[in-house]
Amino acid sequence: MTDRAAARAAKSALATQLSAAPGVVGIGLARRDSGYVVKVDVADADAAGRVPRDVDGVRVVTEVVGVVRPLRSRTA
């Protein structure tokens, strides 16, 4: 079981490591089983292959979500 503090520290380390990695579109925390994991959203399977399975003993999970684009703002 990984507590939230350990997962946050691992997320921070992974965000630094993946900051220039193509295809990584988001990094966050998620609850799994009875603890936390670092969740990495990626644009495609190639990007998922570049993400480590764990960081400092904290499990990392990936999900292919596709390319993320901002919503267009609506004006009146």
Score class of each variant (00 low, 15 high):
G57M: 12
T16K: 13
T62D: 04
T62M: 14
S34W: 04
A43Q: 10
D33P: 03
V51I: 13
R53S: 13
D41V: 05
Y36W: 15
A30P: 03
T62G: 10
L71R: 11
I27K: 05
R69H: 13
R72P: 11
G35H: 12
V38T: 08
R53N: 07
V51W: 01
L14A: 14
G23I: 02
A76W: 00
L14F: 03
G66Q: 04
V60G: 12
Y36C: 10
D46R: 08
G66H: 06
R4H: 02
R72W: 06
A10D: 01
A15C: 06
V38D: 12
V60Y: 13
A9C: 01
T16M: 08
A45G: 04
D3N: 10
G49C: 11
V40L: 08
L29E: 05
V65W: 03
S12K: 11
K11I: 04
I27L: 12
D54P: 00
R74C: 00
A15P: 06
A21V: 03
V67S: 13
G57E: 07
R32C: 09
D54T: 13
A21C: 05
R59C: 01
V24F: 04
V64K: 00
A13W: 00
V25D: 14
I27N: 02
A7R: 00
D33V: 02
D46N: 15
M1D: 15
T62S: 12
T62N: 05
E63W: 11
R53E: 15
R4C: 15
R74F: 00
G35W: 14
V65F: 05
A6K: 04
S34D: 15
A20W: 00
A45I: 05
L18Y: 01
V37C: 14
R32G: 08
D44M: 11
S73C: 00
A10P: 01
T16L: 04
A47M: 12
A47E: 10
A15L: 03
G26R: 11
V67A: 13
S19C: 06
P70R: 13
V37R: 05
A5S: 10
R69L: 13
E63S: 15
G49V: 00
P52H: 06
V67R: 15
S34Q: 14
E63A: 15
A43F: 00
R31M: 14
V67D: 10
V38C: 10
V61Q: 04
R72Q: 12
A21G: 05
V60M: 13
P22L: 06
L14T: 02
D33F: 04
V24R: 00
A7G: 03
V68K: 13
R50H: 09
G57D: 13
R69A: 11
A47I: 03
G28L: 07
P52S: 12
V24W: 02
D44V: 03
V68G: 15
G26N: 10
S19D: 14
D46V: 02
A21D: 09
V60K: 06
R72N: 13
V55F: 01
L71M: 07
A48E: 09
R74Y: 04
A45E: 05
A13T: 01
R53Q: 11
D41Q: 14
R31F: 03
